[in-house]
Amino acid sequence: MAASAGLALWPGQAGAADRAASVERGRYLVQAGGCLTCHTADRPDATPLAGGRALETPFGTFYSPNLTPDRATGLGGWSDADLGRALREGVAPDGSYYYPVFPYPAYTGLADADVAAIAAYLRSLKPVRQATPDHELPWYLSSRLVMFGWNLLNFSAGRFVPDGARGAAWNRGAYLVRHLGHCGECHTPRNSLGGLNGSRELAGNPAGPDGEKIPDITQHRDTGIGRWSADEIVMFLEYGVLPDGDFAGSSMSDVISDNTSRLTPEDRQAIATYLKSL
């Protein structure tokens, strides 16, 4: 009885199948977007995507919010448009600005269909009531309005536009590296305001997150990964193994476990194609 009443609410089998496909696609995009790594607390029993990880930056300590659909502490009640505005413009549903520790300057390139799939997936999660601690910031950043000015200087919104002169793999790789995977957030050096230095894309950041030195992944033969073959890049993204047989530790190890090792082989190949072109 309850089951048939429930079924009557769905607009037919095809709709349900589409929804399931969208949720599945959203799950993949959330992995490829690296959402898990920051939005899951750093403890063994943490609920994935329920937030609470402390992100230490030169500008203070930020705590990642809860992305589960809990109404009080998470994204419960958000529309696709709300999520799209947050991801692509860095603005919350109440109109307040996010700090760019959240990589909206990269996610701004996300396609509409991808935003909708991510929204469908996040909505499918079990709501978890878990309040996020307040950020610990210096006085000059305590007002989110400061970010209005920061955005004027350092941020330009805009969807990814494929380059018609390049192949499908290159374009997919560019989308993954620049936007969804936001590799530049760690691998591109920043200016004194914390904005990315676009002329030095992926050239490494001596003062990366948690004080780590983040390597140059351009094709420079000495400072970058110019000596790596595309196959070696693919192997690294899948297994974390460097061409000399060492295994990456540090923050990239989480990125490999949570994100790049779970991509399709085609997507890893696309990333390698793009990186080899830089």
Binding site: V241, P243, D244, G245, F247
Partner: peptide, 8 residues
């Protein structure tokens, strides 16, 4: 690590 490199 050299054995792993050779393995690959």
């Amino acid at each position: 690590s050299a054995h792993v490199g050779a393995f690959m």
